[in-house]
């Protein structure tokens, strides 16, 4: 479905991505994990058509991505800036449906359905800033769901919420995928990449390139407590952890907070 060939991207002063090759099939849930500053978000923005890669090409269903594709949605990390504070939660969710046509009532009904799917039907008439961070991120997920994209990109979606909320939202993603959309989740959290993904792509330190492409051998039905106890999970997260840190060589966390 999504084909990434020899993609590289450099900004004026540094190389963010180099020779990235990936193929993602319809219906997959793929985690992209890597140290901060490895170009994960750049890759995601290239796929979204927001950034034109300097090298290589990306195609969606055989068509090269030159602008934002029609059937794609993005959930950004910074929910408070991506939701519009002057619109109610329901109108925020209904906003992208405008291009799809239909009456205002139908769009609003679809928005309420999507909010129900993320457990926020009661908040439809509130404003985003009246909700907690986790709830706001649910609203942006609902907005993406209502849009019914074939491909959903999530850029560090749970980076700014507390641990408990994070787990709830991870489970929400697992529920959402049953709708059949292809999901690409960018994260720097190793546990999260393994817990949520069918497949984990590890990007190396900048310039980012694919250092590993691992299938996750966990059952489809997952649970925050029991799944994390499974030997496969423990083994896998250790492997991914080593890869992210640099292939099991000497422990070198790199400069903290570099981005």
């Amino acid at each position: 479905m999504l084909l990434i060939e020899k993609v590289g991207h450099y900004y004026s002063d540094h190389m963010a991505l180099e020779d990235v090759n990936l193929e993602i099939a319809q219906g997959e849930l793929v985690s992209i994990v890597g140290p901060s500053g490895c170009g994960k978000s750049t890759l995601l923005r290239c796929i979204a058509g927001l950034v034109r890669p300097s090298q290589g090409q990306i195609s969606l269903n055989g068509k090269e991505i030159t602008d934002v594709p029609d059937n794609l949605a993005v959930v950004f990390q910074d929910y408070s800036r991506s939701l519009l504070p002057w619109l109610t939660v329901r109108d925020n969710v209904a906003l992208p449906l405008r291009r799809r046509g239909g009456s205002k009532a139908a769009r609003r009904a679809a928005a309420v359905d999507a909010l129900e799917a993320v457990g926020l039907a009661n908040a439809a008439h509130k404003y985003p800033w009246q909700l907690s961070g986790g709830m706001q991120q649910r609203v942006s997920i609902a907005r993406a769901l209502a849009y019914q994209p074939a491909l959903l990109l999530m850029d560090e979606p749970f980076g700014s919420v507390d641990a408990q909320t994070r787990e709830d939202l991870e489970d929400l993603v697992l529920r959402v995928r049953k709708r059949g959309m292809t999901i690409l989740l960018v994260t720097h959290d190793i546990d999260e990449s393994v817990y949520v993904g069918d497949r984990v792509i590890v990007l190396g330190r900048a310039p980012g390139r694919v250092v590993a492409d691992l299938a996750v051998g966990l059952p489809t039905a997952r649970d925050q407590i029991t799944t994390r106890e499974l030997p496969e999970f423990v083994h896998m997260r250790a492997e991914v952890g080593r890869l992210v840190r640099g292939n099991g060589q000497t422990f070198n966390p790199g400069p903290p907070f570099s981005s």
């Binding site: 058509g49 993005v74 910074d78 800036r81 519009l84 906003l95 405008r98």
Partner: peptide, 16 residues
């Protein structure tokens, strides 16, 4: 910028 990026992602029309 993120609001504008969101608008681009959802391909909102110029008037919207």
């Amino acid at each position: 910028q993120l609001q504008l990026a969101t608008a681009r992602v959802f391909r909102l029309r110029a008037t919207t």
